[in-house]
């Protein structure tokens, strides 16, 4: 749905770039290059590129409107095969130059077969459109920058054509799906890295906590009264900080047992969040046992 489109904008572009006109322009471009009229060739190259871009833009606008407003298309979207076919042909108006574009690249032929259908079904139309828009903006910016800054020697029409094909396919659902899948893979890798770091950190903290326990136990079971009293105070401080009620009349051995319980409670199987382990580690660090 959207506001009524002005009559002037209703045509696919300012003037539909027919295949005949396109062929004639390409011939003229090649003749200019051959004759050494590189400035003329550059102007023609840019004209060809912008006219094709205009056709792609017009086709894409209609395509986007259709997949957002026509819920029937979304229903069809439950079948990746059907959507893959419809999306690949959605922006093509038979007879115009975008048809040549579609025929040029076989990049997506068959690729949509490999999509995991379950993954596909989770993608909303909005997410696909957001991905298509982002990809198109990026490709279009690259194209325009190259057209404005590069001559026909470093950026001939054939290279422009490759980028136009990329720009065209950036506005298709299969392309958006590939991009989203790649992004999801990247996110998964980040999640794995986070998990690795968390497990390594947990092991380090556990070793440190256990070392502190051994030290406190040695002091409490030792014969040095001052060391024993100091260990009792440290134990009480640690237990208080992590919220374990130790009372006033617990024996030193009982305080040690309570710390042991706190350590067991911090086991990753008992507290998968790791919050207890982190709190216990912080409390032991604050007790400054060294």
């Amino acid at each position: 749905m959207g506001p009524k489109m002005p009559q002037e904008l209703r045509a696919p572009s300012l003037s539909l770039y027919s295949a005949e006109d396109f062929d004639a322009d390409v011939k003229a471009y090649r003749a200019d290059v051959k004759n050494g009229s590189l400035d003329d060739a550059r102007a023609l190259r840019n004209q060809i590129a912008y006219r094709v871009m205009a056709d792609i833009e017009a086709g894409y606008g209609k395509f986007e409107m259709r997949i957002t407003s026509d819920r029937a298309v979304q229903a069809t979207a439950s079948d990746a095969t059907v959507l893959g076919l419809s999306a690949a042909t959605a922006v093509i108006t038979p007879g115009d130059v975008t048809g040549i574009l579609a025929a040029t690249s076989t990049a997506f032929q068959g690729t949509w077969h490999s999509y995991d259908k379950n993954f596909f079904r989770e993608k909303t139309t909005e997410a696909l459109i957001a991905q298509m828009r982002a990809a198109r903006r990026t490709k279009q910016a690259q194209l325009i920058t190259a057209l404005e800054n590069r001559d026909v020697k470093s950026y001939p029409l054939d290279a422009v054509w490759i980028d136009l094909v990329d720009f065209y396919y950036a506005g298709t659902v299969p392309s958006a799906l590939v991009d989203i899948a790649a992004s999801a893979g990247s996110d998964a890798q980040k999640a794995d890295a986070t998990l690795n770091a968390a497990l390594a950190q947990a092991a380090k903290q556990a070793i440190s906590i256990r070392a502190a326990y051994q030290k406190l136990a040695a002091a409490i079971n030792g014969t040095d009264r001052a060391e024993r009293d100091g260990a009792v105070q440290s134990l009480k401080q640690i237990l208080t900080q992590i919220g374990y009620d130790h009372g006033e009349d617990l024996a030193p051995a009982q305080l040690l047992q309570l710390l042991q319980k706190a350590m067991s409670d911090a086991d990753p199987d008992n507290d998968p969040t790791g919050a207890k382990l982190k709190a216990l580690n912080a409390a032991i660090a604050a007790a400054n046992l060294n």
């Binding site: 998990l195 690795n196 497990l199 390594a200 947990a202 092991a203 556990a206 070793i207 906590i209 256990r210 042991q260 350590m263 067991s264 911090a266 086991d267 990753p268 199987d269 382990l277």
Partner: peptide, 24 residues
């Protein structure tokens, strides 16, 4: 106890170490 089968070798070692240290 059951242990996740999707850990890497490093993750598995860290997980088992954590359990040993905290559970005595």
């Amino acid at each position: 106890v059951p242990v996740n089968g999707n850990y890497s070798m490093g993750d598995l070692a860290n997980y088992l170490t954590t359990k040993e240290q905290l559970d005595f």
